[in-house]
Design a protein around this nucleic acid. Structure first.
Lengths: 248, 248
DNA sequence: GTAATAGTGTCTCTGAGACAATATGAT
DNA sequence: ATCATATTGTCTCAGAGACACTATTAC
């Protein structure tokens, strides 16, 4: 994997620093805020129109510079500041740190690192003019191209969503507080990009009920052209259950 | 999870920046290099004696400041620089980024972030005077206390090791190129901190053989007081197989 | 030879995959 | 009433957990 350069500094893959000049350095936080649209059965990603250089007016992931214009005491506070700002402006139903990338090229200003998060927003938000959703698929295919390395950052989050959805209840967080078994089947099928049998989902829902993660509401949901569906409610908002077997 | 502060800046959890002064900021890389001792059946963590302030002479995780004394082009190059340095000085058998933490307190010098990695070193290295191993257990129990928040960083890596070992072949990387089924059983039992049935491990080894990850060598291993054990060899060094079922 | 441990066989149980059968509600 | 689909039932199969049994080897 990584091999020793036998102690000879000249073989080390680094260039000497510029003496006497403190290097500029940015550490940013970027969120990939995902929303599932029940009607179109597509996963969408929240973007913001950039106000400032670099890449003014282009659509990018909501992010901020840690200790940029405002001092943050912790990274988590930086995340809260971003969530509370008008770049997002809605409480998230889930958030998880995915990775940190950093290099000399990704930001034209200077060396920069970005710590990226996977976030889920169950309720469809009212968007401002500076916000929009694009489909996760269009980002994957590069039909939608983002500034910086944001497409690659979305890739990392998409991979995390996929792999974690194989063996956890994570996709159900897209459905909010109350949902039906057919809706659960649909969202798993979308996230895993293949048809998932409704009976497998039923088994998992039974397991979740056993574990106290969900409970039957007794209510039924019906709407435009769909047959009534019994609903369950999420008893552990924001919590993810780990099944002991994975989907294939 | 995170709630909106209704757009009122005074409620936001941040203090204003100090104008006119560029804030000092460090981004460090810290490695939790794990080694499994077949004899004592314990997992050990590599430490370095710190040369400089803060905390001179105390034992800490091997780490470096990104773009500190040397310019790194990418974070991965920084990791390679650290691995090649005398703080580690041996090729790693596995490495994986685990998390990034950052706040105003963890480093007495200034605001700092650290990106931490889980690394595995299969071969027992020859240690310099500035290096030593301590058991992962003594770090968990706080019998061994490290400077900064390094104990908590080790906790995060330990949790990742544990959870990933439930459903992957990761623990086998502790055993290097050639190992036996009883050794595999032992290392899984140590990592999962419970007895694991040899028949469960045998099943998993059969699966790995099917998948082309390991192959029987035909050789047998015997040594001090132990009975001969058939060995297998790792055909995919550094690669981890994901089983579709988890241990309990 | 003996004792300990390596390696095999077999049984149970859980849950995914598959699909058939029934129930229910929208029209 | 009819039809689509929600919901239930049943079967197979893979693999973990458990344990008995056989084979091998260090002493």
């Amino acid at each position: 994997m990584y091999f020793l350069a036998k102690g000879d500094p000249s073989t080390m893959p680094s260039t000497p620093p510029d003496p006497g000049k403190k290097m500029d350095y940015l550490h940013t936080i970027d969120l990939v805020v995902l929303h599932y649209c029940r009607k179109t059965q597509a996963i969408q990603v929240l973007l913001n129109r950039r106000q400032q250089a670099p890449f003014p007016d282009s659509w990018a992931l909501p992010g901020l510079v840690l200790n940029g214009s405002v001092r943050d005491v912790t990274m988590d506070e930086g995340v809260q500041r971003l969530v509370a700002s008008n770049k997002i402006g809605l409480p998230l139903d889930y958030i998880e740190q995915v990775a940190t990338v950093g290099d000399a090229y990704r930001d034209p200003r200077c060396w920069s690192s970005s710590t990226i998060y996977l976030a889920i927003l169950a309720e469809p938000p009212a968007l401002s003019d500076e916000q929009k959703f694009v489909s996760l698929k269009s980002l994957e295919s590069r039909e939608t191209r983002l500034p910086f390395d944001h497409n690659e950052l979305v890739d990392k989050v998409r991979e995390r969503l996929y792999s974690k959805s194989l063996y956890t209840s994570l996709p159900l967080l897209f459905l909010g507080q109350e949902f039906s078994a057919p809706e659960a089947t649909a969202v798993y099928s979308v996230v895993l990009e293949r048809p998932v049998l409704k009976t497998s989902i039923r088994q998992r829902l039974l397991k979740l009920a056993d574990e106290g993660f969900i409970a039957e509401t007794g209510r039924k949901k019906s709407g435009e052209g769909i047959k009534a569906q019994a609903t369950v409610e999420n008893l552990r908002p924001g919590k993810v259950f780990y099944f002991d077997r994975s989907f294939a």
